[in-house]
Write a protein that binds this DNA or RNA. Structure first.
Lengths: 206, 206
DNA sequence: AGGTTAAATTGAACAATGTTCATGTGAGTA
DNA sequence: TACTCACATGAACATTGTTCAATTTAACCT
């Protein structure tokens, strides 16, 4: 037996199809929302049988969860690109980048935050962990800016702040509701951070 | 024709059944989540045919939307009970009451915020309006506490603050994620308001 | 190369669930 | 009592998730 397995033809096809399925599913969710995602639509678009989707992902939730997993990964990547030079700027940058990303991928993020499992099956831990990790990205800049604070408190603060920003953005972009104009939403987020960081003693009073 | 219509037997039965359907649907959503709500389960529990549910509500979304409507009403009622004496206390009270209500009715609020309509049918305006109105309940105390501020700004601030609190609470109670202990969540909300109101110049620095 | 085998693919059948509608029923009415 | 009409009924239908026996196919062996 050779440890250095080269990718067989079978593996290559399987892999290609897997990617196709995910791409189609993602584009349907992104454009028409999670509720419009149908197995048959995906299978038809990919040009395979419905059974193949099940072979690859177990059940339909498997497709959704994989798309969601990749959404958090993309989000984390994007948030990771925020410069760490000035910690205060970084905090603003994280919030504004989250706003940008949410604006560009609203339906994908809704799928991530709103999808519920059938019955009482648990949501995959790794996805939850990735979300928590993304929300913890405010931790490092907060530590730099509040050097005397207890680390556990900062961790909590990070999650609180990011959750707050998430609430403002997700409701602000809620197209069901009266959509807030994008530029105003950005200002809303900025002013929110202004006040909050000021209250935390991070920004000087003006 | 008599203008003073007394309720006929027919009307009484119809009304009773309508209430039954809503009660059952609400209890299923509350205990097992929106995704577990099935027409047949509701019809069986009420003891009527599935068709009757459709006669009364048009489609299944109609049942969900009516439950959601009543959820906002109950929320508004509850928030309306927060004493208006001290405006700062009122702001804390609104946040804490929202937390309480969310904790007691998590699945109902998720149904309210997460339910999407089929295709591109619009979400009923009156429900959206009621949600906005509920989120505007921070407006009066904010006006009292920021007497010099522009009313439009206060309106925006009210929505921002409430959305932020909503984000903290809805993610904090997200049982999919590592659930935050209730007492800690309450503290999280309080400390959030402490910092934010301080930053707004509402609370004196300590 | 050809034959063998294991695994993936297929799509028809099934299951679960939302929706419709022809039929029956009973409350209101003359 | 007879008539009528609005509502209730539930079987049939439509849509969509899921399964699985039969088929195809890549990989392996001689």
């Amino acid at each position: 037996m050779n440890n250095v397995q080269e990718e067989s033809l079978r593996d290559r096809k399987k892999n290609r199809r897997r990617l196709q399925i995910l791409e189609i599913a993602r584009s349907i969710i992104a454009t028409k929302g999670l509720r419009s995602l149908k197995v048959r639509d995906v299978a038809d678009a990919v040009g395979c049988a419905v059974g193949s989707v099940y072979n690859e992902f177990g059940d339909f939730d498997g497709v959704i969860l994989t798309v969601n997993r990749e959404t958090v990964q993309a989000l984390t990547m994007r948030l990771g690109g925020v410069p760490a030079g000035n910690p205060v700027r970084q905090l603003y940058g994280l919030a504004e980048t989250y706003l940008e990303f949410f604006g560009e991928n609203a339906n994908l993020l809704r799928s991530l935050f709103e999808h519920r499992m059938e019955d009482d099956r648990p949501y995959p831990d790794d996805i939850l962990q990735m979300v928590m990790d993304a929300f913890a990205l405010m931790h490092p800049p907060l530590v730099r800016v509040l050097p005397d604070a207890d680390d556990v408190k900062i961790a909590l603060l990070s999650r609180t702040l990011f959750s707050a920003v998430h609430g403002i953005i997700s409701l602000g972009l809620e197209e069901r509701m009266v959509a807030v104009p994008p530029q105003m939403l950005r200002q809303q987020v900025t002013q929110f951070l202004d006040a909050h960081l000021l209250g935390l003693g991070i920004l000087p009073a003006r």
